[in-house]
Protein backbone atom coordinates (compact mmCIF):
# COMPACT_ATOMS: atom_id res chain seq x y z
CA UNK A 1 0.00 0.00 0.00
CA UNK A 2 1.72 3.15 -1.13
CA UNK A 3 -1.02 5.79 -0.89
CA UNK A 4 0.09 8.21 1.82
CA UNK A 5 -2.10 9.21 4.74
CA UNK A 6 -2.61 12.96 4.57
CA UNK A 7 -1.97 15.75 7.07
CA UNK A 8 -4.17 18.79 6.53
CA UNK A 9 -3.49 22.00 8.46
CA UNK A 10 -6.64 24.07 8.79
CA UNK A 11 -6.81 27.86 8.80
CA UNK A 12 -9.80 29.67 10.28
CA UNK A 13 -10.40 32.81 8.28
CA UNK A 14 -12.52 35.79 9.33
CA UNK A 15 -12.96 38.67 6.86
CA UNK A 16 -9.96 37.49 4.91
CA UNK A 17 -7.63 37.24 7.90
CA UNK A 18 -6.39 34.18 9.77
CA UNK A 19 -7.75 34.12 13.31
CA UNK A 20 -6.52 32.19 16.36
CA UNK A 21 -3.06 33.42 15.44
CA UNK A 22 -0.52 31.52 13.43
CA UNK A 23 2.92 31.59 14.99
CA UNK A 24 5.69 30.77 12.62
CA UNK A 25 9.14 31.85 13.69
CA UNK A 26 9.94 34.12 10.81
CA UNK A 27 6.53 35.07 9.53
CA UNK A 28 5.99 38.72 8.75
CA UNK A 29 2.23 38.93 9.08
CA UNK A 30 0.65 36.12 11.09
CA UNK A 31 -2.83 37.11 9.98
CA UNK A 32 -2.11 36.81 6.28
CA UNK A 33 -3.64 33.56 5.02
CA UNK A 34 -1.46 33.56 1.91
CA UNK A 35 1.69 33.67 3.97
CA UNK A 36 0.40 31.00 6.35
CA UNK A 37 -0.54 28.74 3.44
CA UNK A 38 2.86 29.26 1.85
CA UNK A 39 4.52 28.25 5.10
CA UNK A 40 2.45 25.08 5.52
CA UNK A 41 3.19 24.19 1.90
CA UNK A 42 6.92 24.58 2.56
CA UNK A 43 6.59 22.32 5.62
CA UNK A 44 5.13 19.56 3.47
CA UNK A 45 1.38 19.86 4.11
CA UNK A 46 -0.53 17.44 1.86
CA UNK A 47 -3.50 19.78 1.51
CA UNK A 48 -4.64 23.00 3.15
CA UNK A 49 -8.13 23.66 4.46
CA UNK A 50 -9.65 27.10 4.85
CA UNK A 51 -12.66 27.49 7.06
CA UNK A 52 -14.47 30.78 6.63
CA UNK A 53 -15.94 31.81 9.97
CA UNK A 54 -16.98 35.28 8.79
CA UNK A 55 -20.34 36.02 10.34
CA UNK A 56 -21.61 38.62 7.90
CA UNK A 57 -22.42 37.40 4.42
CA UNK A 58 -21.33 40.64 2.75
CA UNK A 59 -17.73 40.04 3.83
CA UNK A 60 -17.66 36.51 2.46
CA UNK A 61 -16.32 37.36 -0.96
CA UNK A 62 -13.02 38.20 0.69
CA UNK A 63 -12.34 34.48 0.99
CA UNK A 64 -12.68 34.09 -2.76
CA UNK A 65 -9.83 36.57 -3.18
CA UNK A 66 -7.75 34.75 -0.57
CA UNK A 67 -8.27 31.46 -2.42
CA UNK A 68 -7.32 33.12 -5.70
CA UNK A 69 -4.12 34.42 -4.25
CA UNK A 70 -3.15 31.20 -2.51
CA UNK A 71 -3.93 29.11 -5.60
CA UNK A 72 -1.51 31.25 -7.59
CA UNK A 73 1.47 30.10 -5.60
CA UNK A 74 0.66 27.02 -3.57
CA UNK A 75 0.37 23.95 -5.78
CA UNK A 76 -1.28 21.44 -3.48
CA UNK A 77 -5.01 20.76 -3.04
CA UNK A 78 -7.06 23.44 -1.29
CA UNK A 79 -10.33 22.73 0.52
CA UNK A 80 -12.58 25.63 1.39
CA UNK A 81 -15.59 25.55 3.70
CA UNK A 82 -17.89 27.78 5.66
CA UNK A 83 -21.14 29.41 4.61
CA UNK A 84 -21.60 27.53 1.34
CA UNK A 85 -25.31 27.52 0.53
CA UNK A 86 -25.77 27.12 -3.20
CA UNK A 87 -24.23 25.82 -6.42
CA UNK A 88 -23.18 29.35 -7.26
CA UNK A 89 -21.08 29.60 -4.07
CA UNK A 90 -19.32 26.38 -5.04
CA UNK A 91 -18.77 27.55 -8.59
CA UNK A 92 -17.15 30.78 -7.37
CA UNK A 93 -14.75 28.99 -5.05
CA UNK A 94 -13.76 26.34 -7.58
CA UNK A 95 -13.20 29.00 -10.20
CA UNK A 96 -11.03 30.92 -7.76
CA UNK A 97 -8.78 27.87 -7.41
CA UNK A 98 -10.30 25.71 -4.65
CA UNK A 99 -10.08 21.98 -5.42
CA UNK A 100 -12.76 20.91 -2.97
CA UNK A 101 -15.48 22.64 -1.02
CA UNK A 102 -16.77 21.46 2.32
CA UNK A 103 -20.46 21.77 3.08
CA UNK A 104 -22.03 21.40 6.49
CA UNK A 105 -25.14 23.30 7.56
CA UNK A 106 -26.50 23.66 4.04
CA UNK A 107 -26.44 19.87 3.58
CA UNK A 108 -28.63 19.45 6.65
CA UNK A 109 -30.99 22.19 5.54
CA UNK A 110 -31.27 20.78 2.03
CA UNK A 111 -29.60 17.37 1.43
CA UNK A 112 -30.29 17.54 -2.33
CA UNK A 113 -27.63 20.23 -2.54
CA UNK A 114 -25.08 17.42 -2.24
CA UNK A 115 -26.52 15.40 -5.12
CA UNK A 116 -26.86 18.50 -7.27
CA UNK A 117 -23.33 19.64 -6.48
CA UNK A 118 -21.76 16.25 -7.16
CA UNK A 119 -23.67 15.84 -10.41
CA UNK A 120 -22.60 19.30 -11.49
CA UNK A 121 -18.99 19.51 -10.34
CA UNK A 122 -18.08 15.84 -9.71
CA UNK A 123 -18.13 14.13 -6.33
CA UNK A 124 -14.34 14.41 -6.05
CA UNK A 125 -14.69 18.07 -5.08
CA UNK A 126 -17.63 17.74 -2.68
CA UNK A 127 -16.65 17.22 0.95
CA UNK A 128 -19.40 16.94 3.53
CA UNK A 129 -18.40 18.21 6.96
CA UNK A 130 -20.17 16.49 9.87
CA UNK A 131 -20.13 18.02 13.34
CA UNK A 132 -21.05 15.20 15.71
CA UNK A 133 -21.66 15.17 19.43
CA UNK A 134 -22.21 12.21 21.74
CA UNK A 135 -25.78 11.88 22.83
CA UNK A 136 -26.43 12.24 26.53
CA UNK A 137 -24.33 15.29 26.87
CA UNK A 138 -21.58 14.94 29.41
CA UNK A 139 -19.44 12.58 27.38
CA UNK A 140 -18.79 10.51 30.48
CA UNK A 141 -16.16 7.92 29.91
CA UNK A 142 -14.49 9.86 27.14
CA UNK A 143 -11.63 10.63 29.38
CA UNK A 144 -11.23 6.98 30.19
CA UNK A 145 -9.24 7.13 27.14
CA UNK A 146 -8.19 5.77 23.91
CA UNK A 147 -7.98 2.15 24.88
CA UNK A 148 -11.60 2.27 25.71
CA UNK A 149 -12.71 3.97 22.56
CA UNK A 150 -10.67 1.63 20.39
CA UNK A 151 -12.56 -1.29 21.75
CA UNK A 152 -15.79 0.41 20.94
CA UNK A 153 -14.58 1.13 17.43
CA UNK A 154 -13.89 -2.48 16.69
CA UNK A 155 -17.10 -3.70 18.13
CA UNK A 156 -18.99 -1.28 16.03
CA UNK A 157 -17.12 -2.35 12.94
CA UNK A 158 -18.30 -5.89 13.39
CA UNK A 159 -21.83 -4.79 13.87
CA UNK A 160 -21.74 -2.90 10.63
CA UNK A 161 -20.64 -5.88 8.66
CA UNK A 162 -23.66 -7.84 9.79
CA UNK A 163 -26.25 -5.31 8.96
CA UNK A 164 -26.53 -1.61 9.00
CA UNK A 165 -30.21 -1.77 9.67
CA UNK A 166 -30.08 -2.67 13.35
CA UNK A 167 -28.20 0.18 14.77
CA UNK A 168 -28.99 2.83 12.20
CA UNK A 169 -30.83 5.54 13.99
CA UNK A 170 -28.80 5.54 17.15
CA UNK A 171 -25.08 5.17 16.90
CA UNK A 172 -24.70 7.40 19.96
CA UNK A 173 -23.64 10.54 18.08
CA UNK A 174 -25.86 13.32 16.83
CA UNK A 175 -25.26 15.82 14.01
CA UNK A 176 -25.06 19.48 15.00
CA UNK A 177 -25.04 22.56 12.80
CA UNK A 178 -24.13 26.23 13.13
CA UNK A 179 -20.68 25.54 14.50
CA UNK A 180 -21.96 22.87 16.89
CA UNK A 181 -24.60 25.00 18.57
CA UNK A 182 -27.67 23.49 17.04
CA UNK A 183 -28.65 19.82 17.56
CA UNK A 184 -30.55 18.28 14.66
CA UNK A 185 -31.71 14.94 16.03
CA UNK A 186 -29.95 13.25 13.08
CA UNK A 187 -27.80 10.21 13.80
CA UNK A 188 -24.21 10.82 12.73
CA UNK A 189 -23.44 7.40 11.22
CA UNK A 190 -26.71 7.24 9.34
CA UNK A 191 -26.11 10.77 8.06
CA UNK A 192 -22.59 9.90 6.90
CA UNK A 193 -23.92 6.99 4.84
CA UNK A 194 -26.68 9.13 3.37
CA UNK A 195 -24.29 11.90 2.34
CA UNK A 196 -22.09 9.38 0.52
CA UNK A 197 -25.14 7.96 -1.21
CA UNK A 198 -26.04 11.46 -2.40
CA UNK A 199 -22.55 11.96 -3.82
CA UNK A 200 -20.13 13.22 -1.18
CA UNK A 201 -16.60 12.31 -2.28
CA UNK A 202 -15.08 12.67 1.17
CA UNK A 203 -16.24 13.23 4.75
CA UNK A 204 -14.72 15.62 7.28
CA UNK A 205 -15.73 14.27 10.68
CA UNK A 206 -15.40 16.67 13.62
CA UNK A 207 -16.11 15.66 17.19
CA UNK A 208 -17.79 18.60 18.90
CA UNK A 209 -17.01 16.99 22.26
CA UNK A 210 -13.31 17.05 21.52
CA UNK A 211 -12.95 20.16 19.39
CA UNK A 212 -10.70 22.62 21.20
CA UNK A 213 -9.97 20.24 24.12
CA UNK A 214 -6.58 18.96 22.90
CA UNK A 215 -7.56 15.54 24.30
CA UNK A 216 -7.32 13.79 20.93
CA UNK A 217 -9.90 12.75 18.33
CA UNK A 218 -13.05 10.89 19.30
CA UNK A 219 -11.57 7.70 17.83
CA UNK A 220 -14.69 5.62 18.22
CA UNK A 221 -16.68 8.16 16.21
CA UNK A 222 -14.09 8.36 13.44
CA UNK A 223 -13.66 4.57 13.23
CA UNK A 224 -17.38 4.03 13.22
CA UNK A 225 -17.89 6.36 10.27
CA UNK A 226 -14.76 5.21 8.41
CA UNK A 227 -16.06 1.63 8.61
CA UNK A 228 -19.52 2.62 7.46
CA UNK A 229 -18.63 4.49 4.26
CA UNK A 230 -16.69 3.77 1.07
CA UNK A 231 -15.16 7.25 0.67
CA UNK A 232 -12.11 8.74 2.44
CA UNK A 233 -12.64 10.15 5.94
CA UNK A 234 -10.78 13.09 7.49
CA UNK A 235 -10.58 13.06 11.30
CA UNK A 236 -10.91 16.43 13.02
CA UNK A 237 -11.36 17.97 16.45
CA UNK A 238 -9.22 17.63 19.55
CA UNK A 239 -5.62 17.19 18.41
CA UNK A 240 -3.18 18.21 21.16
CA UNK A 241 -0.05 16.27 20.24
CA UNK A 242 1.54 14.12 17.54
CA UNK A 243 0.41 10.85 19.12
CA UNK A 244 -3.18 11.99 18.55
CA UNK A 245 -2.54 12.36 14.82
CA UNK A 246 -1.16 8.82 14.58
CA UNK A 247 -4.08 7.48 16.65
CA UNK A 248 -6.51 9.06 14.21
CA UNK A 249 -5.04 6.92 11.43
CA UNK A 250 -4.25 3.69 13.29
CA UNK A 251 -7.27 3.48 15.61
CA UNK A 252 -9.64 6.04 14.12
CA UNK A 253 -9.01 4.47 10.68
CA UNK A 254 -9.06 7.86 9.03
CA UNK A 255 -7.45 8.48 5.64
CA UNK A 256 -6.38 11.97 6.63
CA UNK A 257 -6.03 14.02 9.80
CA UNK A 258 -6.84 17.69 10.16
CA UNK A 259 -5.45 19.94 12.87
CA UNK A 260 -5.27 23.65 13.54
CA UNK A 261 -3.80 24.80 16.81
CA UNK A 262 -0.83 22.43 17.14
CA UNK A 263 0.50 23.83 13.88
CA UNK A 264 -0.63 27.45 14.37
CA UNK A 265 1.13 27.95 17.65
CA UNK A 266 4.39 26.61 16.35
CA UNK A 267 4.49 23.64 18.72
CA UNK A 268 5.07 21.28 15.83
CA UNK A 269 5.73 21.63 12.15
CA UNK A 270 3.91 19.51 9.61
CA UNK A 271 7.25 17.88 8.86
CA UNK A 272 7.68 16.81 12.50
CA UNK A 273 4.18 15.40 12.49
CA UNK A 274 4.97 13.35 9.40
CA UNK A 275 8.22 12.05 10.81
CA UNK A 276 6.40 10.94 13.93
CA UNK A 277 3.69 9.21 11.91
CA UNK A 278 6.32 7.48 9.77
CA UNK A 279 7.98 6.22 12.98
CA UNK A 280 4.64 4.62 13.88
CA UNK A 281 4.59 2.69 10.61
CA UNK A 282 2.19 5.06 8.82
CA UNK A 283 2.83 5.73 5.13
CA UNK A 284 3.32 9.49 4.65
CA UNK A 285 4.74 11.78 1.99
CA UNK A 286 8.05 12.97 3.42
Amino acid sequence: MTLAKRIIPCLDVDRGRVVKGVQFVDIVDAGDPVEAARRYDAQGADEIAFLDITASSDARDTLVHVVEEVAGEVFIPLTVGGGIRALDDIHKLLRAGADKVSINTAAVARPELISEASAHFGSQCIVVALDAKRRGGDGAGDGAGDGNSNGAGDGDGNGDGDGDGDDAGDSGWEIHTHGGRQPTGIDAVEWAARMVELGAGELLVTSMDRDGTRDGFDLALTARIAEAVSVPVIASGGVGNLRHLADGILDGRADAVLAASIFHFGEYTVQQAKQYMASQGIEVRL
Binding site: T2, L3, R6, G201, D255, A256
Partner: peptide, 14 residues
Protein backbone atom coordinates in the same frame (compact mmCIF):
# COMPACT_ATOMS: atom_id res chain seq x y z
CA UNK B 1 -2.82 -3.61 2.87
CA UNK B 2 -6.27 -5.13 2.88
CA UNK B 3 -7.87 -4.27 -0.44
CA UNK B 4 -11.35 -4.49 1.04
CA UNK B 5 -10.58 -1.36 3.01
CA UNK B 6 -9.43 0.76 0.10
CA UNK B 7 -11.52 3.87 -0.20
CA UNK B 8 -12.88 5.18 -3.48
CA UNK B 9 -12.04 7.68 -4.89
CA UNK B 10 -8.32 6.95 -4.81
CA UNK B 11 -7.47 10.33 -3.28
CA UNK B 12 -4.10 11.62 -2.15
CA UNK B 13 -0.38 11.27 -2.75
CA UNK B 14 0.81 8.01 -4.26
Amino acid sequence: ANPARLKIPHMGWN
